[in-house]
Design a protein around this nucleic acid. Structure first.
Lengths: 227, 227, 227, 227
DNA sequence: AATGAATGAGGGTTCATTCAT
DNA sequence: CATGAATGAACCCTCATTCAT
């Protein structure tokens, strides 16, 4: 559970926490529908109490979604703060998201779906804003990478960002619907490998290495110091 | 509207067509929660008649989904049949899907979501099977492209396929949720451009540079003017 | 299957037979409800055809019920025609009914229940009339038995009849609802044994015999010729 | 109305009572097909409220059935507690059931029928269990009567019990379907009279007749006018 | 005589939300 | 702040029956 927005002092605060925690659990397990009384039950309150604290079921999901993004954002910022090359920061960022997908895929699906179904809702607005804040971190790093020649500069950064998120999502969905399991984090790194311009060098490396060593021997034979 | 399975002769066939067409419309507009009454109204029949021809609402969606895939598949196969280079065939394939996304995004979302929510349903099975058949066309072309050196051979073809589909989906979703419009087909081609190896030429510069300098020294030792 | 009213000549007659036969089967298996299209299917016709020949589902059940009583009545009359003492005829009659219960319990329940639920229906009238005709055979024999001293003359014959039918029914229902099997015919004979006065006479007989012999002695002592 | 399980304190308890009372009424009038709307109307609540308190219509009938058996059982036990001979207790027991048949025949039919139609339902189990508890009281008394020589000891007590219940049921059903009224309680006592061995004294009319005539002769010989 | 199709009137049930206490 | 109860609008679906051909 990724609840972050803890408000411990007041009685109401504690109840709200419990409700959000319960809702988080239920949404993951049963989706947005077919949840009803179960949330209240797990929170140890009565159904009416839920609506005392959250205007509607959708409002409750919005709160849960905010909790999720709180955690996600703080994790990402912490990753970026850690010293490291641009490439390393990119890798950490993607790995953070891949980890969240592994843990929170079910929840993510719930609010993404629900936001799609109610495009004018508070939820949709919230999700859009939080998502933008989050992906901005990616875009910034991507732009750095483009400047450094690690990523193609002539492609919109937004597209590169979409490649990361989109490919991960699609791959996960495919594996789940086929009933297969998947190492999401590894896939994330694979995608990066594929995108980074360096990678294309790699395959030729052995060949070039072999050639170079032969030349070295040729040079030394000729009495010339290699390098 | 993408209804394909037209059965015009019999009265029942015509009614079924009308119902499927109406359902297609409604599902796009209201999602799966589209009321049975509305579907019937648009089809010009009574609500009971809908269930006379389709066992359940989910069954009706399954039929509509099949219609969609019928059209999609036939379009794709026609594209492939048209003579052209592998790369051209790849571009046509992706363009076909991008076009469908432009037209049928709402419908696609409905059956994808519903299949996720009922993983053991006939719909989920149908969708899975049809989807596999369709994406197989992509995988086959991708493998050709890998063999020809247009796409990296050391990356699983499935991952490359996921990059195409996933990136497109994510891009579209992002634009829609932001209320912006998007040229999906152009995006599709952009993705291809990004993936094709031709553009990657530059990279192994360092290594080749080293080799070149060694050769230069070798040449100069041989009394030959380098360059 | 106990269909009796066979009308073989015409095409319609044959269809009607098939429908009645199918209905008989279905009513036994599924009860009056939850039958719908199955009857038509088994009769090899279309649902509409059923209503071409029988005004309503209830009318169809009425026809099936009449078939049942046709057979029942003719069997009973044949039993009575067979020479034999009153007691033997009574036993045969009861045994006939017990046999029918063994074979047709499910069907009997259907039309009895349905007649109860629609007391003014054609079915209820039919069932009442046919049942009266049938049980009259029993009443007649019972009255004979009463006249002959085999059954108590001061009890209404109708009550004795009800004891036979009611006890059998209740016993069968009890065994079925408890999931136990039962030899209905044996139970029928047991009931008769219980009712027939002969069995009760025995105990008192000795006592009376003793008294009479004492009086005889008294009379003879008094010089009076006994009898 | 035979509702017994009154729970008056809480608001919910009162509502549940009202619903059960309304259901009881409706089931009697219209059978199990009584519409949920009507039940709610009579209970003074909205249709949804019914399902808030009882999971399903069948569950509601089960509750009503339990009410019925509660009353029935307590009445019977109270009867047995009243001092009296075995025969008197037997008569009271049968009279109690006969009274219930007079009052609750319609209701009894509803749950018996419904239990037959859904043999695996909670209702069927409930009814079976409660019925067994109730009839056990009869069997116990019957066995006492057998031990005391009031009932034939060589007949299974269960069969004697079935004779009481079955005959009553069949007699009532017959009278109702014929549109005639019936004094059920009197019939109950008549059945007892028929079964009790004492009554069997009468029949030996011939024998007693013979004795009487002999006594007459004896008397006349003694110079006394017979009668 | 028979078919295939359509009808239409409910029927039971769910569930987010509100209200009185 | 919390409860327990009640709401009411809808929704999916069934099935005996009728109609046009």
């Amino acid at each position: 559970m990724s609840t972050t927005h803890v408000e411990p002092r007041t009685r109401g605060g504690r109840t709200r926490d419990a409700i959000r925690a319960a809702a988080d659990e239920c949404f993951r397990q049963y989706g947005f529908d077919a949840t009803g009384a179960e949330i209240a039950r797990r929170a140890g309150v009565v159904e009416g109490t839920v609506f005392l604290h959250y205007r509607s079921k959708l409002g409750l999901l919005t709160a849960v979604t905010n909790d999720f993004y709180d955690l996600l954002q703080s994790e990402a910022e912490r990753s970026l703060a850690r010293a490291g090359s641009v490439v390393e920061r990119f890798r950490l960022l993607v790995d953070g998201w891949a980890s969240r997908m592994e843990t929170d895929w079910d929840l993510i699906n719930v609010f993404v779906q629900q936001a799609q179904n109610t495009p004018d809702s508070e939820l949709a607005k919230t999700m859009h804003a939080r998502s933008r804040d989050y992906t901005r971190l990616f875009v910034a790093v991507i732009e750095e990478l483009q400047a450094d020649g690690h990523l193609p500069a002539d492609t919109p950064a937004a597209l590169l960002r979409d490649m990361v998120f989109g490919t991960l999502e699609h791959t996960v969905r495919g594996h789940i619907s086929a009933g297969r399991s998947l190492d999401v984090r590894a896939t994330g790194q694979q995608i990066i490998d594929l995108l980074l311009l360096e990678r294309e060098a790699a395959p030729a490396a052995d060949r070039l290495g072999a050639i170079e060593s032969k030349l070295d021997r040729l040079l030394s034979r000729a009495g010339i110091e290699p390098d």
